[in-house]
Design a protein around this nucleic acid. Structure first.
Lengths: 210, 210
DNA sequence: TAGATTGTTAATCGATTAACAATC
DNA sequence: TAGATTGTTAATCGATTAACAATC
């Protein structure tokens, strides 16, 4: 039941970066790339790259490097992105719109299916082609779409926990949290925090240090 | 010249979180808090909190915990936020607007002074009360405002490096990078990366793992 | 083959946490 | 004072990287 983590968390967080980079290389028509050259592009040590890749399998060939098409396919299946994953957006403000735009640019193995908001101006409309529903429809929507297990939370901090509880009770198991609140969730739920205000403060601080 | 890093990078990244949390506690009228209780709120081990604080000084009192007002003042001066820091925004799209809104909610020791964009619809307008200028005015603006040393880069990836070079040549020493490109900068320049697309992919992957 | 690059073993480094002395 | 909490020492843990054998 409780699957052992197959690879270190630090590696897990880099795999999507590799995947995205190899997609780009593929689009550019690159056939092979060596860890040394990839290291320069991605600003990651070649040893770290090879170590990370070794968790997935023996992807490379000595003297040749990594076959771009092969690695893309391998990473894709490793990430479970062979079939696209659906997610929902909580909040339909500027951040939500930015995320929808981001998502459109990238190779679409993650599909934002719907956004939820309380604003009567937004409800009933679309962002790109993503429909915006009222928050009161959230529970029903998730009940009807049980394959959706990930939500992006871009709602105000004050209601973040309350919405989280609802998401979890409706079967959501992964939350990308843009609020500054740390969310209380059962251990079975994964939360990734993106605290933009703190990030900016950290940067300002580090800049003055350096 | 080359100032030694005073505290571990992991700690440096948490200090702004502590600062924000203590601001909140202050607003709520909390007088004292103990590491054990703070740990529950912030989801950080009490030992980690005490260890982090010890880098700043002996902030607490046995049996009493941490005086909220005192810690806010201490963190503020430690972060160099006694006087507010000015930053500029590159790009005036939805992400930029979201960041401006974020910034307005928080205690304002970081001031976004101006945004720069190429869109003729946006140039000349304001977001909240932040003026939007044309990208071609960036160099002059930074030359006239040499106290601005931090920029938020929310421009498309294709032009990210080009803009970075311009920022650096105009004296910018800290960049919050929202593009998916890793930026080439001199070692004197600090970059914090926020790769939203990768974050989302990581979350989806980890969710399926758990 | 000789040379170069991978995957891996072993060493290092940095961060976290358990244990505890100091002390209020 | 007795008890509890801080700040710190020492141990643990996890991640990175240097060194290198395997091999193409």
């Amino acid at each position: 039941m409780n699957e052992q983590r197959l690879l270190p968390r630090a590696t897990a967080k880099r795999i999507p970066q590799y995947y995205r980079q190899f997609q780009k290389l593929q689009a550019e028509g690159v056939i092979n790339i060596m860890s040394k050259d990839l290291a320069i592009i991605m600003k990651i040590e070649p040893t770290t790259i090879r170590r990370d890749f070794s968790y997935i399998g023996e992807l490379g060939k000595q003297r040749v490097g990594y076959d771009v098409n092969y690695v893309v396919a391998k990473l894709q299946s490793f990430l479970g992105f062979d079939e696209p994953k659906s997610v929902v957006l909580i909040g339909a403000g500027h951040l939500a719109t930015a995320l929808i735009n981001y998502n459109y640019i990238k190779g679409n193995n993650i599909l934002i299916r719907a956004a939820f908001d309380n604003s009567s101006e937004k409800v009933g409309g679309v962002i790109r082609d993503i429909p915006v529903y009222h928050m009161s429809d959230l529970a029903r929507y998730l009940a009807e779409n049980p394959h959706i297990t990930v939500a992006i939370l871009s709602a105000p901090s004050e209601v973040a926990q309350e919405i989280t509880d609802e998401l979890v009770s409706q079967g959501i198991r992964g939350i990308l949290n843009f609020s500054s609140k740390r969310l209380d969730v059962p251990r079975t739920v994964t939360v990734e925090n993106v605290d933009l205000a703190s990030k900016l403060q950290t940067l300002v601080y580090l800049t003055d240090q350096a």
